[in-house]
Nucleic acid binder design. Structure first.
Lengths: 343, 343
DNA sequence: CAAATGAGTCGAAACGTTTTATCATATGAC
DNA sequence: GTCATATGATAAAACGTTTCGACTCATTTG
């Protein structure tokens, strides 16, 4: 009825449990004869080792937790997709926690992952450039013997490895691109600005403006919440309030889709009347109408790097703390063009 | 150094381990006095129960496995996002398996989930309407005592609960919509047709054509692989081969983005020259240019329903096998219009 | 030929819980 | 005051592995 245990295998093979264990784990030295017997017995019974018991006995779970703000966000989902492939290849199991952008849930999940005695954690977050309420919790994880890697999440003065894309520089070069086209009234559509969601991009935006001696007008900075709908609504409202803008820097491509729509509906041509540049370079941006100039973020490489760092940190006992910042690339397509308005 | 165990708590509280266990699980009857003592001790030590040991002893893991074709696909990622919220609320842990659309990996992950002795599995798949190589594996899961729910995956003549959207009917009504606008040369852009990826949508497409006495021309059915790029390429090629088509039924919205682009580049106006209707109703389709007519699939409700069915099936020992088919809704926007070509 | 070495196998303890049967002790009925 | 009955608390047996020290032979070494 119930599933066969190691004891069943050992009995059938006529050996001790410990011997059977050694064979199935390719550990110590065993004679070819008994090895074959045990393997045959395991085969015959369809034996599948009980991972739970194994974890308890070996004090190693071979589980890593992946904590992600939201799987409904393609940017994060792509990172996770890439990440999990490598981790699974390495024979690890993955416990997934979606925090739904909720600070409380994040803390709760951290407790749960501790109860599960996971070997490692990949913590993916909104890279805010600010203090985060749960920073302290993160700092404590390594003390509990858990290997930790941060992706798109900053933790200052910490030896914990951190991996992220250089969004500040990306924003800066995007806005510089607009400036070089002659634009001076450049608005920014951010995402979750109040929660620090695009803090670094905002900083890059402001730096670029200052470099061009353009005063920063906080009235031109609006929050679109990272969705097409948000981008649409916020742009409509912005257009009414400030009809004179000639360019928009949008903190992610998903929002840009709504931004383009709002522009089109209000009779503005892109890029003749208004230029738009996005961020992320999601697969669809190339095919928008007009195709979207944007900043390419190497999403997949972020996931791969996170896996590699965690894996190597799981092997060594040495806490090799490396922080990796991925460069970001300006992609110029058809949604940006010279400014046709004299000021 | 190491984390406190239940024995530590019991010792500090001056009671037996079993008593401490009972208190912390709110099980049998305990005097208020000892209850308070144990709780105080647990608090003082910062005790976090070891989930691994608990699972081994209780023969219940409180883990469910979620098997998904690809998290990089927003359609599935959204289902998972919705699903995991409910499951986590119910105090379950989630082991995630991304099969990367690979049959072999799917089988491998199924073994892994069995080793983990998960209580339940939510299996998300491409609903092919055909036999699948791993069908047999799925049928065996319940025999191993694992509760199983299928989402967007068909398993004929099985008592296993299945949840999916009525894609065949959706395709049929989409194509009927095109027919009612006067179109007769209607192409279909499918996804992974060879692997059965949009088999049901194809069947709906063909049914609608037959109802309108329009012969099915398999030369008009092409495969776009479910990505914007695929939709773009395949449409360019189709346009060269069959310039006379006046309408396109596209099996998902992501591909539609590329389809619209290809049309625009070849000088076709949408909807004046060619009508396009998509499938899924992803958030961005409303904001495309032109806004995309499509078929709304209640993605989030699929995830919610899956969670509910699994949860109730985890409580009862009765295998309540219900199959839920979600209706699908035609959304008419600006990418479809009357046929302006006389045949 | 005795002693040291080594390969192969095994028994038993450990991992940290849950759970069941048992044991005191106090409570109530008559 | 006795006997049955609750009530609280406990000891001990699981759960299914891993791992380590010990044991047995057979082989090599001096």
């Amino acid at each position: 009825m119930s599933r066969p245990t190691l004891a069943d295998v050992a009995r059938l093979a006529g050996v001790a449990i410990s011997t059977a264990s050694v064979v199935l784990n390719n550990k110590g030295r065993v004679s070819p004869a008994t090895r074959a017997q045990v393997q045959a017995a395991a085969q015959a019974l369809g034996y599948q080792p009980n991972a739970v018991a194994r974890r308890l006995a070996s004090r190693r779970t071979n589980i890593v937790a992946v904590v992600v703000p939201s799987l409904a966000n393609p940017f994060f989902a792509t990172i996770v997709h890439e990440l999990q492939g490598r981790l699974l290849d390495a024979g690890l199991d993955i416990i997934m926690y979606d925090t739904e952008d909720d600070v409380q849930l994040e803390a709760k999940h951290t407790e749960s992952l501790l109860r599960n005695r996971v070997d490692g954690v990949v913590f993916i977050g909104q890279h805010t450039g600010m203090e985060h309420p749960n920073d302290q919790i993160l700092r404590e994880l390594p003390e509990q013997g858990v290997k930790l890697v941060l992706v798109e999440r900053e933790l200052s003065e910490s030896p914990i490895p951190q991996i992220y894309a250089d969004k500040e520089e990306g924003a800066r070069s995007a806005v510089r691109h607009l400036v070089s086209l002659g634009h001076r009234r450049i608005a920014m559509v951010g995402g979750f600005l109040s929660m620090g969601g695009s803090f670094l991009r905002r900083r890059g935006y402001e730096t670029a403006l200052q470099e061009a001696k353009i005063p920063v007008d906080s009235d031109l900075i609006v929050d679109g919440g990272f969705t097409p709908l948000g981008g649409y609504q916020v742009t409509r409202e912005l257009l009414l309030r400030r009809p004179g803008i000639t360019a928009l820097f949008v903190a992610n491509d998903l929002m840009s889709i709504g931004v383009l729509k709002a522009l089109q509906e209000s009779g503005k041509r892109v890029p003749e009347d208004v230029s738009v540049i996005g961020f992320d370079n999601i697969p669809e941006s190339r095919f928008l109408n007009p195709s979207l100039s944007t900043v390419d973020v190497p999403t997949r490489r972020l996931g791969q790097a996170a896996a590699e760092v965690l894996l190597s940190s799981l092997e060594d006992k040495t806490t090799n703390s490396r922080t990796i910042v991925f460069p970001v690339e300006l992609i110029i397509r058809d949604s940006t063009g010279p400014c046709n308005v004299n000021i």
